[in-house]
Design a protein around this nucleic acid. Structure first.
Lengths: 206, 206
DNA sequence: GTCTATAGAAGGATAGAC
DNA sequence: GTCTATCCTTCTATAGAC
């Protein structure tokens, strides 16, 4: 594969990502992608065979990117509280630069959950819990965080960071009416979410 | 309009709702809707003129239904804590019976925010805050809930109830791997979310 | 590898009979 | 009000020249 092939293939891929993120699988048109890449429509098929394959390539890339942002939380050597702060800073920071990602993923996964199966099946949840427990057994005991509560807790944490972006359309409409700004709201949220979760954790077992 | 007209129009509307919720605006096909209603495709145009008008009718109905579920919270004569519990019970309970609603709305609004404008412009946020404040001034002061914090707080509350449904595709894949059940998780969530939020509120101002 | 041209299918919409 | 037939456009995909 020559250098120029690679360039074209990359330009197609980037354009597809752009268009699919904007319009979704059903709303995207091969012609739009070709125009965006400045090439002919048939080249899309030459490189990716079909719309579905092109979409799959894009979907996998996007899903990998997003999930990769969750991983460091379990590695980094920090206290539980610092990890939570770290997560909200990093994750919300990442979404600030990739705002359409949450809505895209949630929608496409609901539309076709099978696409996710490969990603999920690679995760060893047993190991995740073990890591968490060995690293923070003191904190977990102190705050009475049991294994049974973890799904509720994780869902809450993820939702606090992801939901505002998934609901950006709604929030921007509302904020406009209140003379507020979505970007400011998001910037604030890094600290608010961390404070909120940590406070709840520390006091919930009482 | 005769009784049978009404019946047909309703059957079309219900079928459209079903199909649009399942496939979204872009993914839905007029033929699917006609099949689902057991009528001919051209009848759709006879009653609703175009796909876009049919979709708009459905969208408005759905948005009205969902937002209507937020309203009682501000009316009911309860303590702040009871209101929060009441909200999670009612709202999650409603979504249990209408699981595809959140994903549908979030997606379609992101795709075309203008559709929401009519709904939002009717809300008087000044009045909402005034109502809240007159009803709960003691609690608000005690917990140091200021007007500035309200958007973060409300977004958090809504996200805790809505996000699991919007992310149902992901959660079901994950839960399957953990021998968990989405329905049980949701049932648990009514209490978990209320406890979590109330605990955070009561202790955050320290 | 990239283009033009076009096939082939599907979708939204309408005309017109009953 | 409901159906059949059909128009017209759009979209994915491929054939074939260069």
């Amino acid at each position: 594969m020559t250098e120029s092939d690679r360039q074209t293939e990359d330009r197609i891929f980037d354009s597809a990502m752009e268009v699919f993120l904007e319009k979704g699988m059903d709303g995207a048109r091969m012609q739009d992608i070709a125009n965006h890449a400045g090439i002919n429509k048939s080249l899309l098929h030459y490189y990716y065979r079909s719309k579905d394959r092109l979409f799959s390539a894009v979907f996998e890339k996007i899903a990998t990117n997003l999930f990769a942002k969750f991983a460091p939380v379990f590695d980094v050597n920090k206290s539980l509280e610092d990890k939570i702060r770290f997560f909200f800073d990093e994750h919300i920071g990442f979404l600030q630069k990739n705002r359409r990602l949450p809505g895209f993923l949630l929608n496409e996964i609901n539309r076709n959950p099978a696409r996710l199966r490969n990603f999920i099946s690679e995760i060893d949840f047993e190991r995740v819990w073990t890591m968490l427990y060995t690293q923070h057994s003191d904190d977990l005991k102190k705050y009475n965080i049991t294994r049974e509560k973890l799904p509720q807790l994780m869902t809450t944490i993820v939702s606090m960071s992801v939901f505002p972006f998934a609901a950006r359309g709604i929030l921007e409409e509302i904020f406009e009416q209140m003379d507020m700004n979505f970007d400011d709201f998001i910037e604030e949220r890094k600290k608010f979410a961390a404070d909120f979760v940590i406070t709840a954790l520390k006091n919930m077992n009482q």
